[in-house]
Design a protein around this nucleic acid. Structure first.
Lengths: 149, 149
DNA sequence: CTGAGGTTTTGAATCATTCTAAACACCCAC
DNA sequence: GTGGGTGTTTAGAATGATTCAAAACCTCAG
């Protein structure tokens, strides 16, 4: 079962939504709480399943709506991998994604500023970037398990 | 109308397919020729349309099959962008993609070796990469138009 | 209380992609 | 050349994620 949002988290949510002239609703709180509870890059459907545990009447379309809204106000980031269902993670520092082919799990990889600027430097003149996405594919050797966000 | 493959190109095709124990077929030739003719990262459907001009009976499923085969033998690369249709480009040097949000066009960005190694260096221990995908989103200032491959 | 506007719900619709089964085509052994 | 066997192509149905449409809901301003 999903915890409620902390004061602080509800603040973030409210503030972010307010910027786009949108409100906090019970559904949005639940969906946001689900994302914060387990940062394992869930698909829409996974979010839906988890959110339903605390709010049984919730509909799938609403989950799509909420997530889209969150993405719109920069609260959450979309992760697309090949042709699979879109996954979501609560936004934090800039990071790349590592997709483990064997487990299907997605790990976040911290992205130091110098790497970002190196990347930007390879763009020819006239190319203006809004965002850069980097994803690694491979597999993890079980050295230590790595936190997935 | 699509040109036939050059000697050299047919060679490449034959060799690549042979490795997977697969044959050159008229359909595969046409699809491959389409990819080489205009390196603008066409979708399956675009490939289908173009290929049909030289081979009217060609079916969409076959285009899917051919492209999948090519990807399987490393002749061609898939480019996924957000949730849009998959696009294809004939494989060459390692490169990143730049997606112009205003035109929807995809440009290839050359990827120097040092950038690749910088990227690999940010992976924690135990992460083994097979491939890295980098995509920029943004827009292009019309300095000079840039070739799209 | 009344209405306007954004939100949620349900179910239908869309779109890319995959699957299935039947028809083909080619090659090898006889 | 004839009959299989194997891999390929075809057409159309099926799937799955996502989006759309319309009705029901809520909430807040007047």
């Amino acid at each position: 079962m999903i915890q409620n949002l902390s004061e602080h988290q509800r603040e973030d949510l409210l503030e972010a939504l307010a910027q786009g002239g949108q409100k906090v609703t019970p559904q949005r709180e639940v969906v946001y709480a689900v994302l914060l509870a387990k940062r394992d890059h869930p698909t829409v459907d996974e979010v839906f399943q988890r959110a339903r545990e605390s709010m049984p009447g919730l509909s799938l379309a609403t989950v799509y709506n909420c997530l889209e809204t969150f993405v719109g106000c920069g609260l959450v980031r979309q992760v697309n991998h090949e042709r699979e269902s879109t996954r979501y993670c609560p936004n934090l520092a800039p990071h790349a994604h590592f997709r483990d082919e064997s487990t299907g799990r997605v790990h976040d990889i911290e992205l130091p500023a110098h790497v970002l600027s190196t990347l930007r430097s390879i763009l020819p003149n006239g190319f203006e970037t809004d965002s850069i996405e980097i994803s690694f594919h491979g597999h993890t050797k079980n050295s230590r398990t790595h936190t997935s966000n």
